[in-house]
Design a protein around this nucleic acid. Sequence first.
DNA 1: CATGAATGAGACTTCATTCAT
DNA 2: TATGAATGAAGTCTCATTCAT
Lengths: 188, 188, 188, 188
Amino acid sequence: MRPKNQTKELIARTALRLFVDQGIDGTTIRDIAAAAGIAEGTLYRHYPGKDALAWDLFISNYTAFALELHRIQAGQATLRAKLDAMVRQFCAFFDDDPILFSYLLLAQHGQLQKVTPEMANPVEVVRQVLAAGMDRGEIPAGDPDVAAAMVLGIVLQVAIFKIYQRLTQSLTSLAEVLVEACWRVLAG
Amino acid sequence: MRPKNQTKELIARTALRLFVDQGIDGTTIRDIAAAAGIAEGTLYRHYPGKDALAWDLFISNYTAFALELHRIQAGQATLRAKLDAMVRQFCAFFDDDPILFSYLLLAQHGQLQKVTPEMANPVEVVRQVLAAGMDRGEIPAGDPDVAAAMVLGIVLQVAIFKIYQRLTQSLTSLAEVLVEACWRVLAG
Amino acid sequence: MRPKNQTKELIARTALRLFVDQGIDGTTIRDIAAAAGIAEGTLYRHYPGKDALAWDLFISNYTAFALELHRIQAGQATLRAKLDAMVRQFCAFFDDDPILFSYLLLAQHGQLQKVTPEMANPVEVVRQVLAAGMDRGEIPAGDPDVAAAMVLGIVLQVAIFKIYQRLTQSLTSLAEVLVEACWRVLAG
Amino acid sequence: MRPKNQTKELIARTALRLFVDQGIDGTTIRDIAAAAGIAEGTLYRHYPGKDALAWDLFISNYTAFALELHRIQAGQATLRAKLDAMVRQFCAFFDDDPILFSYLLLAQHGQLQKVTPEMANPVEVVRQVLAAGMDRGEIPAGDPDVAAAMVLGIVLQVAIFKIYQRLTQSLTSLAEVLVEACWRVLAG
DNA sequence: CATGAATGAGACTTCATTCAT
DNA sequence: TATGAATGAAGTCTCATTCAT
């Protein structure tokens, strides 16, 4: 018998991989159990069910990333530095764990409706950083939602291209380019 | 008895709406039939099955949009004008049929693996236009895939914000802003 | 428009062929209509439904053959001559219309339960001829059912071999051999 | 929880009975599950599906009987003794498990097309035994396929009569009569 | 008589979840 | 805690039959 957390972790990683490869609905409990080398029933010792597993995988990592993003930008003084740090954070996250990143990206359309406003949220972090920058006059005032969308779009679409192997470089190696692009968009 | 194409069209629109609202896997044949006011079996006189319906809805519109995009940019002489036309085309498409646009956006992760290179493809159109612009020296040379990702990201993420109602303006009213942002990203 | 009986006949022959090829349950109304070049609904102008079609095809030909068999043996004086005539009748029937013969053979297990004793029946004809022959002392007395089974078995199993193409000769060319075999079985 | 093989065996016997009573197409998964006292889904833990169940039931027993038949004739020296042993084997099989025998008899028309030449086959066993007997001069030379058809016809049609209750004796009690009849047919 | 779109009952099958071991 | 056979609700799809034209 494995220690409890080890089995739970095994389930989490296995499910993550299969969810990304086949979609959540396209992945069965049996798939997960078989790939993890455990019995089907064992999964239920660690998670209440499949939906809970998918949700847990999503929200814990989504929140953790949002908090990390918030922490990292807080350590910077200027908007430019905050933007730089955040974009690099996205890139590092992707390069460090592309499967998890992909999951958050691809699962969001199914899970986002269960996200409540009080939960930490990467989109909100970016929006607020940009709004604050506008307030402080670091960039021209504008609709902070539009600004956030454009910045996120630049970074996330590059990640999607990487997922679909239209790009082969690491995201980190593109960070500088992305930061510069975002800045030009914002600096108007 | 309705004329044949009328029923097929009814099924298509109903399915589109439900697929966007509940996801493809989250929508049952029964859902579609009930919402369309037809019998379950009737659907199968018009489509071979649920997968084929989802695929047909995706690829026919995805391809049609790609061709339209290609046509519209070909009518412009400069990259700046092509970019302007293409972005406006995205915006007009979204405003004209947000459900269809959403479907193409959300369904792509499930259907894209069935897209073959010879099928017309909006991503490819954008990439080629940008690559040509680089070749002609209209914008600084760079990785055309990265450039395409950034341009697409700006437009599509704004569309996603609109879908999730973070934005309330029409996309068309944002077109100028988006074109300008894209251009600044590209013009380096 | 075809004359009524021509369409009905077309349906009957088409159904017969498909029933033999694919089984009754394996054949759909749509199959029949498509193969016959008519609309699905047209079939119902000529037959009450699929079951009725299969039954009609069976019982009318089954009965007709039984009556023919009875008539032909009645024209012969001795058991040997009756047997000869009946076996030749089976062979001629097979060679003349192997599809119909196959249908009667293969469909019987599904339809026989609907056959009532007062319906003319080839098995019964053979049994009675043999029983009468025993009564008249033309062959040794024995269980007429066993005798009928053996005689029928010889003829029908050869037909089955022909259907499955284990044999290539016409049945008629084997008639002499079959009659002789039956006679040896009976003559004890 | 029953031991695995017990449930599979229960499904097999129940299906066999229903297939014989109602035909394969006339028997639903629900029928089988209800008659076996299990849930519908349970069947699928033991068989891939209904077709596979019907096929497995057919081919495993068909092959097993062919091998047994081959084994039993190999233990005899003369054709007469081989024939005697084989006919008694058919009779004993029928009397021992009339449902299984009926299934093999009735299912063959649907399943035989999936039988490949390398699969053991009772018809082939009989044919080869007779062909060898002809080669050794134990019976007059002739077409071994015709001979096999006649011998099989005698035995199988008697079995069919028994299935339809035209006969009430056990087949074993008729074995002597059948062997004698076959021999007269062959000995010419 | 012919058509063929529409119907809807019912078939097969999948799969998240339970529970006795 | 782990197991995996069993469950049964629910999904996809088929097809005999009907009926308005």
